[in-house]
Design a binder for these strands. Structure first.
Ligand SMILES: [Mn+2]
Ligand SMILES: [Mn+2]
Ligand SMILES: [Mn+2]
Ligand SMILES: [Mn+2]
Lengths: 222, 222
DNA sequence: ACTTATTTTTAGACAAATCTAAATTTAAAT
DNA sequence: ATTTAAATTTAGATTTGTCTAAAAATAAGT
């Protein structure tokens, strides 16, 4: 079965929104897709016929298992292409989203599998989001906000809360990125800034705003 | 200025047809694009407004210089992606055309340039067709049909007349491909088969049909 | 030159995806 | 429980790209 780019964008948007909210409302979707509620209703009816979702009027929508499978395939392509753009073609992570929005709709199954193989089956995209494998499975690491990390616990940066150029710039300057290992040394209650320590580097202080846009997972130090 | 996938497909089709025929007719285009003449007329009017071509009713169409520039950009993307698929992702040359038909419409300018850089600025695609550079220039080698190559002239296979799986299969078996260096040793007028010799290999005979689907350029033997 | 055949264009219709404006349904407030 | 507000759906129109059937222009045949 083949789906249009528009249909795929709807499915992906519903997938992302239902992670947070359970049932997804028409207005939420309209906002996410920068379109009008009336258009959403029309499309939901069409996608219901195609059995990609379960929709009851006035009651919101959820993906069917068919729909979820499709959503994961699209997310997989999006994140694999982002990884390719950053790691093979040397894009900055703030430049890849728009391009991946187009590339995720290329339909060739072989292309995705060969790309995955070429890239070495990466598990996370450049923003730290997990890449579903060909079966739709992905590593779900529970990650906590850096601002909430307790002192002296070894941890590793695993994702970022924003994909802005500004964030990328400051992270580059401070030599922080996905995979960076660190520990919190001090927390200052005055401005909620924190002092962190990375291996082979002097301790540095980072602002509350910066700490809040980094997510880490704890690691055993062996 | 942004163009739809459909518009780009029309422009590319006109580009390819006008190489052969000069002015392109409505029916030719309809055949090439598997659509109806009436649809062609409609689209030609639209593309005229967008100044991509010069069209007079009942008199056929040619690309404007704007249109030609666009066509070359699309051909460039098509052939670069084909090169990528074969050389980086290990596709067979008979598997890449459909995928490249989709990939050629990805709009990111940076993507094309970085891809070109990553691939090492290849000059020819896997079928031996020249890849336009970022300025739209391409190497135009005059190539002759292998069936017309005079005996004992060193030559190199530079393109193929078909992209079928069947051709690929026989070429693989006979260890022939783009870049293979050879000389014609004998021509048999009975069935127009020819005997060719490649370096470090015993001479082999190939059929008229096979020779006709290979194009070569002569090379100096130093 | 006149008739016939072919090519091309117009006219009118249709499906996909969207919009605006109006009508319904549900939720919130008094 | 009414009234008011917000969310959602319908109705009708629009744009893009396509189609069929009919009309017009060009080309070919005698
Ligand atoms: Mn993205
Ligand atoms: Mn991402
Ligand atoms: Mn091709
Ligand atoms: Mn090619």
């Amino acid at each position: 079965m083949h789906f249009t780019t528009t249909e795929e964008n709807y499915i992906k948007a519903i997938y992302h929104l239902q992670q947070e909210t359970g049932n997804v409302s028409t207005n939420e979707l309209a906002a996410e897709l920068s379109t009008k509620p009336a258009s959403i209703t029309d499309m939901l009816k069409k996608l219901t016929v195609k059995k990609l979702l379960r929709y009851e009027r006035y009651k919101g929508v959820r993906l069917s298992s068919e729909g979820e499978k499709l959503a994961l395939a699209i997310v997989r392509k999006h994140r694999l292409w982002e990884y390719f753009l950053v790691n093979t073609l040397e894009f900055g992570w703030d430049e890849v989203h728009e391009v991946a929005e187009e590339l995720e709709h290329i339909s060739s199954k072989k292309l995705v599998e060969q790309l995955d193989l070429f890239l070495g089956y990466p598990k996370f995209d450049p923003h730290g989001d997990p890449i579903p494998d060909s079966q739709g499975r992905m590593v779900m690491q529970q990650q906590i906000n850096l601002i909430d990390l307790a002192p002296d616990i070894p941890a590793e940066v695993c994702s970022v809360g924003s994909q802005s150029t500004e964030l990328l710039e400051i992270l580059k300057h401070k030599q922080l990125g996905i995979g960076t290992k660190l520990q919190v040394k001090r927390k200052f209650s005055f401005d909620h800034s924190i002092e962190i320590k990375m291996k082979n580097l002097p301790a540095i202080t980072i602002s509350q705003q910066l700490a809040q846009s980094l997510f880490v997972k704890t690691i055993s130090n062996d």
